[in-house]
Design a protein around this nucleic acid. Structure first.
Length: 259
DNA sequence: AGCCTTTGACCAGCG
DNA sequence: TCGCTGGTCAAAGGC
């Protein structure tokens, strides 16, 4: 299979998205180190960003790899907490599933011909998008029911994104196989905006422009912090973080622009 | 009131 | 052709 320019464009966008999220993670690390103490639950904030970045990069790799259908990108995040065993590894496997069947109207099924990919994960329900469950089915040969989700904005924005969550193992860190079908066309995602002099409020659900997304953090996660950082301090920290990253930032961004 | 999940029924693909 | 199975619909109830 030959990649089209459209596919390359999509891949570039996904790589850009992953890069952007990693930048935000870098800012988070600064947030912690500059405050000296555990001012923010860094892990709690960083984890969804890691997952988001991995998902974007996995998807981009799927697009870019020749011979789609055999793509298998494995990546793993291990977050270590001092004084405790490794926080569970988070495994993510993206692949196109050429044998999967999808719907074609009420009850119709056919072999996949459009975009779908699989993500094996231990946290299937928080991927930054809003989903509405529309079905639940016990599948023969499996120990756990399969759940069917569609994008919440299906009607409003004709978003055709869907996902199917199948638990594959139980235990302390249960794993799930999440099959995504179709990319989101609604572009709605949980985001926060950096505080500005005009606004110090955190947290909004806004339409993202595709590449300059802010961290995928819910406002309540910030409010749960034992020591809140006021808006002015946070603004300074964001500014400092972006100064530090400027050295390596240009190389990647110019690459993404030239590619 | 509006959005969500649950759940049984329905329907079409597949062997 | 028929039964099994997986995916979706839609009513009902909950939050």
């Amino acid at each position: 299979m030959e990649n089209s320019y459209l596919d390359q464009g999509a891949a570039i966008r996904e790589v850009g998205r992953g890069y952007d999220i990693l930048k935000q993670l870098h800012g988070l690390l600064w947030l912690k180190s500059r405050n000296g103490e555990e001012a923010v639950h860094t892990q709690e904030l960083a984890e969804p960003l890691f997952r988001e970045a991995l998902q974007a990069l996995n998807y981009a790799l799927c697009i870019m790899r020749p011979g789609v259908g055999s793509v298998e990108v494995k990546s793993e995040i291990v977050v270590l907490e001092s004084g405790s065993p490794a926080y569970s590894s988070h495994e993510s496997v993206a692949s196109y599933d050429s044998n999967q069947r999808i719907d074609n109207g009420r009850g119709k099924r056919r072999r996949v011909e459009e975009n779908s990919w699989i993500n094996n994960t231990s946290m299937p329900y928080d991927d930054g998008y809003q989903w509405r469950k529309y079905g639940d089915k016990k599948i023969s040969g499996t120990d756990f029911p399969r759940s069917y989700f569609r994008c919440t904005y299906k009607e409003e924005y004709k978003c055709t994104a869907k996902k199917v969550v199948q638990q594959t193992s139980d235990g302390e860190t249960p794993s799930f196989r999440v099959t995504y079908t179709n990319k989101h066309t609604c572009n709605f995602r949980k985001t926060i905006s950096p505080p500005t002099s005009q606004s110090s409020s955190f947290g909004s659900i806004e339409q993202d422009s595709g590449i300059n997304q802010m961290p995928d953090i819910m406002p309540q996660q910030l409010n749960q912090s034992s020591c809140l950082v006021d808006a002015n301090n946070l603004e300074k920290i964001y500014a400092n973080a972006s100064m530090v990253e400027r050295n390596w930032e240009w190389d990647i961004e110019s690459f993404l622009m030239d590619w």
